[in-house]
Amino acid sequence: MTLLETTSAAVISTQSVSRKPRRWGTRLGWSVTIGAILAFLYVPIAVLVLFSFNTSRSLSWPMEGLTLDWYRKLAGNEQLIEAVGNSFYVATCSTILTLVIGVPAALALDRLSFSGKGAFRKLVLLPIALPGIITGISMLILFRMVGFTLSLETVIIGHATALLAVVVTQVYARLQRLPRSYEEASADLGASGLQTFFFVTLPNIRSAVIGAGLLSFTLSFDEIPVTFFLTGRDNTLPMYIWSTMRRGLTPEINAVGALIVAFSAVLIVLSVILMRDKPGAR
């Protein structure tokens, strides 16, 4: 998940310094600073990707040769493939669940006035400040009490709970900037509440919903603490990696990492395309 964030942050910072430099001295100073920041952010990732092609198991420089062996090995690792599948399943379901609950919650917060609204808002947002370990343990206790067997589905519920705050915060912030007269105009023109939501409100908060969804997905994808407490026998990818790492770093892990980097890159491109607001839209 941090991949998504850091990459976009880096993109922003490169853009903002491309303004006209005043003097060569300052320009040089800036270049060094930028270079240092980028190196700090990306050297570890570059190393990871590079060593995933290394013929040798050792992590020493220079590399002995290039190979795709580790990727072939990955393809044959059933446990790993299952873990990846589980991670996708959990991340997708918890994202959908949290959106389905979070978007209406944000709407209620913004559009309705009811007593205790302030308290409701704080309570919805609080879990974001709770350590995952607390969410994990408390939900574990709850699930035990009501007699749920632990499975990927309990993980999904746990993730959705923790992620709700992310969705509500982002969508609520967008709704606050959306003039209420749009919805009033829609109602005035004869639209029902649902028509207004799908034809007017949703298109105008689209990028916030997509952004919150992508962020939820990545957060869920690499979540460990909540997953650790709530999963049954199934492993998600981060849990699998973590468990194999106890037996030492392998180039196979590098290969998994490299694939995740590639996947994140796809997500970033996707988010840039999807979140590009149409001209005129807010």
Binding site: A185, S186, A187, D188, G190, N204, G280, A281
Partner: peptide, 18 residues
């Protein structure tokens, strides 16, 4: 509003931007 035979022009026009 959607059940009334009147229509309104808002001060900010409220044209749907999308």
């Amino acid at each position: 509003p959607n059940k009334r035979p009147v229509n309104i022009v808002f001060q900010d026009y409220a044209l749907f931007p999308h």
